[in-house]
């Protein structure tokens, strides 16, 4: 079983497919859960404190806005953990954790930089595209098993 970073990291579709085809999806919820279940100082809603954007300096310099560094503190460790990645281009309507285009650019870049199997594709816009979309992901994930 491989750890597959899903992008958008909040994707219900990718999460479903990766699990269905026998692998573990890595997405925002994993990091958020860790924050929510770790004791510390109270900082609702997602228990990100000023320490997290500081930790985010590992992936983005200090002149990068705090919201990006805070998000990178969620994603950075997951990217490091990932064995593979599936990237859907242009998640233009994935909000919240994926709500910042600059973070998304940096995140996708980090995934491309990392020397891991990677599949990039677009959301389907028809039934026919749905078939190639699922086939591409299924085939990609099947090959991961062999690797």
């Amino acid at each position: 079983m491989a750890k597959v970073f899903i992008y958008p990291a909040t994707s219900l579709i990718l999460s479903t497919l990766v699990t269905r085809f026998g692998h573990q999806p890595l997405g925002s919820a994993i990091s958020i859960r860790e924050h929510i279940q770790t004791p510390g100082f109270d900082s609702p809603p997602i228990q990100i404190t000023s320490d997290d954007p500081q930790y985010g300096l590992k992936w983005a310099a200090v002149e990068v806005p705090s919201g990006i560094r805070g998000r990178m503190s969620l994603y950075g460790p997951l990217v490091e953990e990932a064995d593979a990645a599936i990237i859907i281009d242009e998640p233009d309507l994935a909000f919240g954790c994926m709500g910042c285009a600059r973070t998304n650019e940096l995140l996708a870049f980090m995934l491309r930089e990392k020397n891991i199997p990677r599949l990039e594709l677009n959301y389907p816009t028809s039934k026919e595209e749905g078939v190639t979309f699922v086939a591409a992901i299924k085939e990609f994930l099947k090959n991961l098993e062999r690797q």
């Binding site: 900082s43 000023s50 320490d51 705090s66 919201g67 805070g70 910042c100």
Partner: peptide
Amino acid sequence: TCGAEYSGIQNEIT
């Protein structure tokens, strides 16, 4: 707002 939760300051605003 954009970025308040991820900057860790949402609670400060509230």
